[in-house]
């Protein structure tokens, strides 16, 4: 039985990915800040991915659990509101969870020969659109996206394909907490759908996956007219945010 690693497997997209993998017969190691129940085929590791000491210990522990036939670096947190109104400690945690930890874990797994299959980094549609009202989140997701692009060839030489996933808004608690006033949750993609699309693309070794046709249109518009899209994002999100959430 092949083993998959999923970070942020306790909720939202991560949980949907874990459940799908279990249904397909994978053995899953799920890492999450919250404690979780361990069921047959699923091993839960509780770890605060914003804590450097905890991450170092996790990296060591994962070294003895592989090889992994798949790794999905999905864990992420956000901080929405006016940039200057959110404490720097929250940004420190965000940058560590979203960018530093997945880079460090992936490099460690590849270096130690613990990866025996594809790898996926979950960034965000904000990589294409920008995200006023979440400038540091946008920074962390851009950093992760370009890390994925940068390591694709060097990791491929070691037999590890790298997929960059840029999902748009999902129907998760995470999105609900950070959505602007009046946002329509029904228009967000169910996490189960995004999980299926992202896993299929990762197992096929695709370079990039943006789940959903509407999201792909948004990504294209952001590429073609970045300034226009950024101003539109301001109207849609920043101007409608009611206070800060982190």
């Amino acid at each position: 039985m092949k083993t998959a690693l999923v970070t942020g497997g306790g909720a939202g997209l991560g949980r949907a990915i874990v459940e799908r993998l279990l249904a397909e017969g994978w053995r899953v190691v799920s890492v999450d800040r919250a404690e979780g129940t361990t069921v047959p085929g699923l091993e839960h590791l509780a770890c605060d991915l914003a804590d450097r000491h905890a991450v170092d210990a996790l990296a060591e522990r994962l070294g003895g659990m592989g090889p992994f036939g798949l790794a999905v670096f999905n864990a992420g947190v956000s901080a929405t509101g006016r940039f200057e109104a959110i404490p720097i400690e929250a940004y420190r945690r965000l940058m560590t969870v979203n960018a530093e930890t997945p880079m460090l874990l992936s490099a460690g797994l590849v270096r130690t020969g613990q990866m025996a299959g594809p790898m996926c980094f979950v960034s965000s549609l904000s990589h294409f659109t920008g995200y006023p009202g979440a400038a540091v989140y946008a920074a962390s997701k851009d950093a992760l996206a370009v890390y994925a692009k940068s390591v694709r060839k060097p990791f491929a030489r070691r037999g590890v394909s790298v997929t960059l996933a840029c999902p748009g808004p999902l129907r998760t608690d995470h999105a609900r907490r950070h959505a602007p006033a009046g946002a329509d949750a029904d228009r967000r993609m169910p996490p189960e759908v995004a999980a299926r699309i992202i896993l299929d693309a990762t197992l096929a070794g695709r370079r990039l996956v943006v789940p959903g046709r509407a999201n792909r249109s948004v990504a294209l518009a952001g590429r073609l007219l970045p300034g226009t899209m950024m101003r539109q994002m301001r109207r849609l999100i920043f101007d409608r945010l009611q206070g800060e959430v982190w």
Binding site: P132, A138, A143, P226
Partner: peptide, 12 residues
């Protein structure tokens, strides 16, 4: 990251 940060912050 700097690129994405600057673009969003410039708008804010």
């Amino acid at each position: 990251g700097l690129h994405g940060f600057a673009r969003a912050l410039a708008e804010e």
